[in-house]
């Protein structure tokens, strides 16, 4: 192992469409530079089962929409130095929160009964129950920084990650403050 360990970075996918992660991949050749500068210790694009301890930076995509998300969010907070809300769903609830005007029962009935192509099929117990409302991440745990946009642009992500890897909480210039 190197004398100065590289920052340990994670990305997490909660209640979102993974568009923010797609945008992350839009960093293109900058990804190669990132690979040199950090260790990606947990991410949906790699097959890691448990969220490790002592993570330096995490980008959390999506709203907190299920019991599992809630549990995950709390775990993330305890195990991570800098938690970043990654994109509009994590920051405002956004599209994930569109379901909040319906009750969980209504939602399940509509999705798994009325609209199910092969007839009614209630989700099995393996799937985590939905929380009453989908909530932005910071309503559930303290969050250190926010990346806006649906999705955030690659440049915006670069600016933030670059700062974070230098150990700074990114102060995003106003030009990156864009919802939607």
């Amino acid at each position: 192992m190197a004398a100065t360990p590289k920052p340990r970075v994670a990305t997490v996918w909660l209640g979102g469409c993974s568009g923010c992660h797609m945008s992350f991949l839009d960093l293109d050749e900058r990804l190669i530079e990132l690979a040199d500068r950090m260790d990606l210790v947990f991410t949906p694009i790699a097959d890691v089962k448990t969220y490790p301890a002592n993570v330096d930076v995490v980008l959390v995509e999506g709203a907190v929409s299920t019991e599992e998300h809630l549990h995950m969010a709390q775990l993330i907070r305890k195990r991570t130095r800098f938690v970043v809300s990654f994109g509009d769903c994590a920051t405002t609830g956004n599209v994930t929160a569109l379901r909040n005007r319906f009750s969980v029962d209504e939602l399940l009935r509509r999705s798994y009964h009325e609209l199910a192509p092969g007839g009614p099929a209630t989700p099995s117990k393996i799937i985590s129950p939905l929380t009453l409302k989908a909530r932005p991440l910071h309503e559930v745990i303290p969050v250190d920084a926010f990346l806006h946009g649906c999705p955030p642009t690659a440049d915006q992500i670069w600016f933030a990650v670059d700062n974070l890897l230098q150990g700074k909480i990114p102060e995003l210039p106003n030009v990156y403050l864009r919802y939607g």
């Binding site: 809300s85 920051t91 405002t92 609830g93 929160a97 909040n100 005007r101 409302k133 909530r135 932005p136 910071h138 309503e139 969050v143 926010f146 806006h148 995003l172 106003n174 403050l177 864009r178």
Partner: peptide, 14 residues
């Protein structure tokens, strides 16, 4: 954007 609202601390009422 003008006021620099980077996140909303108030509880969303939905």
């Amino acid at each position: 954007y003008e006021v620099g609202l980077e996140h909303v601390r108030a509880q969303y009422l939905f």
